[in-house]
Amino acid sequence: MTVTVGLGCAQLGNLYRAMTDETAAAIVDAAWLTGVRYFDTAPHYGLGLSERRLGEALRDRPRDEYVLSTKVGRLLAENPAYAGERDTAGFDVPATLVRHRDYSRDGVLRSLESSMTRLGVDRIDIAFVHDAEDYVEEALAGAIPALVELRDQGVLRGIGLGMNFDKVLAEFVRRSDVDTVMVAGRYTLLEQPALDELLPLCEERGVRVMAAGVFNSGILATPTPGTTYNYEQAPAALVERAQRIAEVCGRFGVDLPTAAIAMPARHPAVEAVVLGASSVRQVESNAARAATEVPSALWEALAAEGLLR
């Protein structure tokens, strides 16, 4: 089974470390050459830098040939106290702007208008409400109805939610009319809590799922398991579990990252696996892994050993 891959563009916003504009453009170009036609970004990523770089890299591509998503929930404003500081949210950029959480109707409209300006486009295809786990009622009262209205007017092709919390995503799916969700890190080779409620609910309601964070922020990103999980030092028990998974994968001639990309795509509700990249080489290796056939016997072996649900 070939995996449909989207490019997650947090790295274009200098996630953890800076990259040049040339590298950012080369990453998007490489993704396009491998067949990627879905690109996801957000104002949060590098205080708008990801959106600006992605828009520039896609500027000469036919607009009808790709799907573009961004997110709402964080408005960017000038930082009046800026005195040379760097951003403290994980992006290596100057803190010339500040983020304000805003899940109101007005905030959504302002956010989308600003995003389109940074991207240099006249439309967004999919708008996700971003990281609203602590703002459920505000988003249900403001952001979601505003996005529904834009979708009904034909301004947006789809609306949804993106976060790391599968149970909160399930609550939104139950309580609102969304088309898609982006679940990060909760349906991976290492852990599958999204199977409890979210994925069955999405399958029942026809809500498309984008699986992101499939490497659990690093532990599954290399053939030998890493030590980063959920952006922190991984507990020893999880590293040991990842090592056991890698050993089983090795018996079938499959490396850990290849299995990590392939596993989420097996679920019928999952439409695409969204992968980030900090270099052209990563884009190309992700594409090669996504195109690799993984034997079904691998999943059976992992389940038999209690390593996969």
Rank of each mutant, 00 (worst) to 15 (best):
T4H: 14
L7G: 00
A24G: 15
D29N: 05
V36D: 01
T41K: 08
P43C: 10
H44V: 03
H44Q: 09
G46R: 02
L49Q: 10
S50K: 02
D60T: 12
D60I: 13
D64G: 15
G84P: 12
S104T: 07
D106C: 04
R110G: 10
L112M: 11
G120P: 00
V121P: 07
I126G: 00
D131M: 02
A132F: 08
E133H: 12
V136I: 12
E138Y: 07
A139P: 09
I144T: 14
D152G: 01
M163Q: 09
N164K: 05
L169I: 09
F172Q: 03
R175K: 13
S176M: 05
V178R: 06
D179Q: 03
D179A: 05
V181L: 06
R186V: 07
R186S: 06
Q192F: 11
P193L: 11
P200H: 02
L201R: 07
R208P: 09
F215V: 03
L220N: 01
T224V: 15
G226C: 03
T228G: 03
E232L: 12
Q243V: 09
A246K: 07
E247H: 05
G250E: 07
V254K: 01
L256H: 00
A259M: 11
A262H: 11
P264V: 13
A288D: 14
T292P: 06
S296R: 12
A297Y: 06
R309K: 13
